[in-house]
């Protein structure tokens, strides 16, 4: 499903350059659940970004679900992110002045889905994540755990094949963390490919397979 071959990412040029990924090669099978661990600045988030095409690798090949991410056009990558990838971020990046439904529906605005269909799909996902009573609530009024679930709903609303979660539990309490991880477990059980970045050993304990990155290199596979 995800295949990286000798991927290198260097930020900057000359003396000030920083190698974030250094000849990384890995293979993630379809339906697998992979954890990425490592210290801050080790290259975990950069790895997620090059997988999703948000950043271009300096060298190497990246193939995700049959798409060559390195050579794909902006339009192709955008469609790929919309249909194949679901993103969950550490700090949610939700629009506080919008409702849970309006936030969730955002990826569908970039598709040819009708308004009624969009709202139905978004409401279904929010219901599934236990937010049926918060659909029309402004995100600014929700707890951090609920916000994380809204962020998850936004990532899942297009029914992606892959979920990329970057420190999804870093900003929430333990109860909410448990809820979020349970949801991710369910998604994995449903056949979704999941790549989860965390530096929390408790979180990584629940992940079947974990890769450790240090200074841009895979040190434990």
């Amino acid at each position: 499903m995800i295949k990286l071959d000798n991927v290198t990412k260097i930020f900057g040029r000359g003396k000030d350059s920083l190698t974030a990924l250094d000849h990384v090669s890995m293979n993630v099978e379809e339906g697998s659940y992979l954890g990425l661990s490592g210290r801050s600045g080790s290259g975990k988030t950069t790895l997620l970004n090059v997988i999703s095409g948000l950043e271009r690798a300096t060298a190497g090949n990246i193939n995700v679900d049959g798409i060559n991410v390195q050579s794909a056009t902006d339009g192709r990558l955008a469609a790929f992110r919309n249909k194949t990838i679901g993103f969950v971020f550490q700090s949610f990046h939700l629009n506080d002045w919008e409702t849970a439904l309006e936030n969730t529906v955002l990826p569908l605005l970039l598709t040819r889905t009708s308004r009624s269909e969009r709202e139905k799909l978004a409401a279904d996902v929010l219901n599934r994540l236990g937010l049926s009573d918060k659909i029309d609530s402004r995100v600014g009024t929700l707890s951090t755990g609920q916000c994380q679930r809204v962020a998850l709903a936004r990532a899942l609303v297009t029914k992606p094949k892959i979920l990329l979660a970057d420190e999804p539990t870093a900003n929430i309490d333990s109860e909410a963390e448990n809820e979020a991880l349970n949801i991710i477990d369910e998604l994995h059980a449903g056949g979704m490919t999941i790549v989860l970045v965390s530096h929390d050993p408790k979180v990584l304990e629940r992940v079947p397979r974990t890769i450790t990155i240090e200074k841009g290199r895979i040190v434990k596979y």
Binding site: S52, L54, D74, G75, A78, A79, R81, N82, K83, F87, H93, N95, L106, P107, L110, T111, R154, T158
Partner: peptide, 16 residues
């Protein structure tokens, strides 16, 4: 910037 970045992350092209 954050809203723009999210739009890009969920599938918006530069043109969009």
């Amino acid at each position: 910037a954050s809203r723009i970045a999210i739009l890009r992350a969920v599938g918006a092209r530069r043109w969009d």
